[in-house]
Design a protein around this nucleic acid. Structure first.
Lengths: 230, 230
DNA sequence: CCAAAAGTGTTACAAGTACACCCATGA
DNA sequence: TCATGGGTGTACTTGTAACACTTTTGG
């Protein structure tokens, strides 16, 4: 067994947890209990254990804050400036996750190192601790880009959804309106949605058809060279 | 001043250095002098110094192996599985760089921890040390994708180039042939190339017009919402 | 004069964009 | 019966794909 004699930085993971409700795209922040930045809002995160892969550390953080496991999560970027943490050299691997807010909103709980956890509109964030403003900026950019070329938007919706919900999602994330007819034409032509027998319930207007995303078919089509694009 | 009492992993950077010559897309590998994996080929890399940003560590590695500085370089992905290095917990932040092989090929020099450094065709790599096969796979995927949506291909060419060189580059990276007339139409319509007075020299056939990439104009167009696409 | 790559337009088809009205439902 | 969002088709414009011959140059 060999060992390294180099001094070592600390390594943390930070999670940008995106959710979507009727009004806007949201992100989950925690209020820090301890210094540095006590009282400030920050992205949930924490240390990577020595016997834990970094992906798993990120999943653990997500679960500690939301109680959700198995959600869509992807590595975002690694932040390694020397002075990004006043306590010393800390390299942070950032992840972003997409969660279905409708189903899980009530479960958000502050972990032990936070005095509270809350959803904030991405367009209206408080000042953030560390370099988390920069992390957010990159996360939003990545989400905007990714959502156009991969069908990850569905992760933000309930399993059964109406086309207008899906369109709304794209409009909120991309920050522009889309033509209803063209949107429907395009998305339905892809054969990625299964029309359900079930209809929207409890609305005071014509009920919409519900659809679900056909993941199996997407994977097959993708293997044959199909590429998703909005 | 605060300190962390957590055990700390080691952090390294690894560099995927891409180059292009007449035949194919290449990558620079070093042959390891020491264990683990002594004698095996690997991506150039090394430890991040405590007072050095990770981006800068990657640039330093690039420069140590190639003598080149200021080349296009971008963070790729961070690899953090527990057993990826037999010596202990080592988290590696991978970068990829694009260099102009025509101009710099002769300058490749093995750094002190390597017995030699050599360019290999990406399509025909030797077995690699650590998890570097996986790193390469992700790097090639990223390059293939990125080159279609951002004008980074030019980084692999000399400053002055013929359209056929550019087309060749895309064909080699994307792994398929492109129609000459359609390619020229598309790329010229973008207004990103400046036609130079100079012509190709020393070829035994009709000399091609030379062009250069108009970076300033690209940035202006991009700011106005233009998006590059091949 | 031959070999080798440079350079050049047109047509057919597919995809994208713009646009306005009737329908179903619950209050 | 009104308010609210659901649902639908067509014409126009733009982009993509397929395709073959002439030009220039050096050897």
């Amino acid at each position: 067994m060999y060992t390294y004699e180099y001094p070592r930085p600390s390594v943390t993971v930070d999670c940008v947890i995106f959710g979507l409700d009727q009004e806007s795209l949201k992100v989950l922040l925690i209020q820090r209990k301890h210094d540095p930045f006590a009282g400030k809002w920050a992205l949930p995160g924490g240390f990577v254990d020595m016997d834990e892969p970094i992906d798993q550390a990120a999943q653990r953080e997500l679960e500690e804050e939301t109680g959700i496991s198995g959600m869509y999560m992807e590595q975002l970027y690694t932040f390694g400036d020397v002075h990004r943490d006043p306590r010393g050299r800390v390299i942070s691997v950032a992840y972003y996750a997409l969660v279905n807010l409708t189903a899980y909103q009530h479960q958000v709980v502050a972990a032990s190192d936070a005095s509270q956890a809350r959803w904030f509109a991405v367009a209206d964030l408080p000042l953030l601790a560390f370099d988390h403003e920069k992390v957010m900026e990159i996360a939003v950019k990545r989400l905007k880009n990714k959502v156009r070329y991969q069908p990850i938007g569905f992760e933000l919706l309930p399993e059964k959804f109406a086309l207008s919900q899906l369109q709304n999602l794209y409009e909120m994330i991309l920050g522009r309106t889309l033509d209803k007819r063209n949107f429907r034409k395009k998305i339905l032509k892809m054969n990625l949605l299964v029309e359900l027998a079930e209809m929207q319930q409890g609305v005071s207007h014509r009920a919409a058809k519900l659809y679900k995303f056909d993941k199996e078919n997407y994977q097959q089509l993708e293997a044959k060279g199909f590429s998703f694009e909005i």
